[in-house]
Simulated scan of single mutants.
Amino acid sequence: MAKLLLNLRYVPEDEAADVRDFLDAAGMEWYQTRPSPFGISHGGIWLRNNEDFAEAKRLMADYQRGRQARAREARERAEREGTTETFADIARADPVRLVMIVLAIIFLIGLMAVPGYMLSR
């Protein structure tokens, strides 16, 4: 019976490709399911043989440690070089979105305050 190794929800394509590559390199049989048309399932990478699951999990843990180290290094390099994205960069890039979010927050806070106001009258 097949076992799910990786749910592809919020997984970037480069990471999924790396996982497929290390499974192929290890000689493990796998298959990938596609996302559902209604967004209920986002697909996954499955192992065909249950016997491979423990080794695949170990390989996955090693891969994720390496990916985490590379991501941290890239973040630190961007911070040193001053190229990290700041709140001001986001606000300059899409000010309409920022204003809409602030208005939505104010509206929701007001909507939550209405029952308290009505009860205090």
Results as ranks from 00 to 15, higher is better:
3 K>W: 03
6 L>K: 09
7 N>A: 12
7 N>D: 15
10 Y>M: 10
10 Y>C: 05
10 Y>S: 11
11 V>I: 15
11 V>E: 05
14 D>G: 09
16 A>C: 09
16 A>M: 08
17 A>G: 07
17 A>N: 15
17 A>Y: 07
19 V>R: 00
19 V>M: 02
19 V>L: 02
19 V>A: 02
19 V>G: 00
20 R>E: 11
22 F>P: 00
22 F>W: 10
23 L>K: 00
23 L>R: 00
24 D>E: 08
26 A>C: 06
26 A>E: 11
27 G>E: 06
28 M>W: 04
28 M>P: 02
29 E>F: 03
29 E>M: 07
29 E>H: 10
31 Y>R: 12
31 Y>M: 08
31 Y>W: 05
32 Q>F: 00
32 Q>A: 04
32 Q>E: 09
33 T>L: 01
33 T>C: 01
34 R>T: 10
35 P>C: 03
36 S>T: 15
37 P>E: 10
38 F>Y: 14
39 G>H: 09
39 G>D: 06
39 G>N: 11
41 S>T: 14
43 G>P: 04
48 R>F: 02
49 N>K: 14
51 E>A: 09
52 D>S: 08
54 A>F: 01
55 E>L: 10
57 K>W: 01
58 R>W: 04
58 R>D: 12
59 L>K: 09
59 L>Y: 03
60 M>P: 00
60 M>Q: 13
61 A>K: 14
61 A>H: 12
61 A>I: 07
61 A>G: 05
62 D>K: 14
64 Q>P: 02
64 Q>M: 13
65 R>L: 10
67 R>C: 00
69 A>S: 11
70 R>D: 10
71 A>F: 03
73 E>Q: 14
73 E>M: 05
75 R>F: 02
76 E>S: 05
78 A>Q: 07
79 E>D: 08
81 E>W: 04
83 T>V: 05
84 T>V: 13
84 T>N: 09
85 E>N: 05
85 E>K: 11
86 T>H: 01
88 A>Q: 13
89 D>M: 04
90 I>W: 04
90 I>N: 03
91 A>D: 04
91 A>H: 13
93 A>T: 11
94 D>M: 05
95 P>Y: 03
95 P>F: 01
98 L>T: 15
99 V>D: 02
101 I>M: 07
102 V>P: 00
102 V>M: 04
102 V>F: 05
102 V>Y: 04
104 A>M: 12
105 I>T: 13
105 I>L: 10
108 L>D: 07
109 I>Y: 03
111 L>R: 15
111 L>E: 08
113 A>H: 08
113 A>P: 05
114 V>R: 14
114 V>Q: 03
114 V>C: 02
115 P>D: 06
116 G>T: 13
117 Y>V: 13
117 Y>N: 03
118 M>P: 06
118 M>A: 08
118 M>W: 14
119 L>R: 15
120 S>A: 12
120 S>C: 06
